[in-house]
Nucleic acid binder design. Structure first.
Lengths: 204, 204
DNA sequence: CAACATACGGAGGCTGCCTCCGCTTTTTCA
DNA sequence: TGAAAAAGCGGAGGCAGCCTCCGTATGTTG
């Protein structure tokens, strides 16, 4: 990423790079402690830089988040590869990938919200990231579908949004230990009982 | 509701009641147009009252929302009764109730967020409302379960949160016509293919 | 129609977002 | 090495939104 967007022939100043690194570290810590909606000025202050400096590096909250998620992207890609190579059962692979996505989406408190926004607003710095993961989800999903492990009408985009939704709820369900797991299961199997044949419950 | 919380022997002043009514109408309109996160001062201004008056009537955004949802509560209760009396199939009844809940939760743009918060924060004026609907969901769910239409491990609370989650996503999926429906289906049947007949591919 | 209770208005304090521009630091190159 | 030029920094300040406080206006009561 270093000086990739800038077409200049000059290297970025060292203090600039240092500030950027430091800001990222501090932001990571701050978001971890107070969630992604916490004050950006507080982060700047905590990092010991002025507001101007902060905003020059990260013009928006989304830009900062995108930079923070960049680091985790590598982990997630690694996870994807690990699943692909180690898990031969495609349905299990899809499950593992969705779990990984879920963990990624809950890296910070309140993260699902900007992610959801990014799915539709292609102006967001997070948009590309999300799009990539939707594609990956679609790949896992297609594999599972070929093996009869996933319903044909479900789309990768819907699964991705579903994961975001469940991660979003998780923030509220904290008090209830069972809810997160219950909701994941809900998305996997739904609430309806498996009506093996269409011979629905006509009073046994 | 009129003067129910106040133990005073005096009737509320007429201008107070008038202001309250007017504020509710204006807020309804404003939230419909700009979502629940729009400026409260803007609503006060649009209603032609000072900020102080506004906050005296509705100390918080949640209080205002609770008051607005009060009106819709009657519709929702009516819907509940209608479903109970007209729908003999308990599984269909549950589906209809979840649809009604979903519609209720998307009355305004951004409504799912404060609703989710209310599910856990019992200090919120919306908490009681949510709790009531969770109970109702549980009743429909139990009925469906008795008739074999719902998985035994699913809880009403999870379904309620699931509906909120899907409604929340809907805000992002607007651009994609198919997503809302896809997500509702996802919660009903899950993404996994029915395992029982994994080998028998061709049928009905 | 007092006099009393009640409610109103909006100024003002506070926080957070973001921009702008004078000043400092770094880099370049003679 | 030591200017000049380029790049980056800081934080004051403008703006918007939340919410409170208290002097004033308006209903209500006898």
């Amino acid at each position: 990423m270093t000086s990739s967007t800038e077409a200049s022939g000059r290297r970025p100043r060292t203090d600039k790079q240092r500030n950027r690194m430091h800001l990222l570290q501090v932001a990571e810590q701050h978001f971890t402690e107070h969630g992604v909606t916490s004050s950006l000025e507080a982060i700047a202050k905590r990092a010991g830089v002025g507001a101007g400096t902060f905003y020059r590096h990260f013009p928006s909250r989304e830009a900062l988040l995108a930079a923070l998620l960049q680091a985790r992207a590598e982990q997630l890609v690694a996870r994807r590869e690990a699943i692909r190579q180690q898990e031969s059962d495609t349905t299990t692979a899809l499950t593992l990938w969705l779990d990984a996505l879920s963990e990624w989406a809950t890296a910070f408190d309140g993260l699902p919200e900007p992610l959801r926004a990014a799915v539709t607003e292609d102006t967001s710095p997070l948009a590309l990231t999300c799009q990539g993961y939707i594609t990956t989800t679609d790949e896992f999903l297609h594999a599972a579908r070929r093996d009869g492990g996933a319903r044909p009408e479900v789309r990768g985009r819907d699964l991705f949004l579903g994961v975001l939704a469940m991660s979003w709820v998780r923030g509220a369900a904290m008090a209830d230990e069972a809810s997160p797991q219950a909701l994941s299961a809900l998305m996997r199997t739904g609430w309806a009982a498996p009506a093996a044949s269409a011979e629905t419950a006509s009073n046994p």
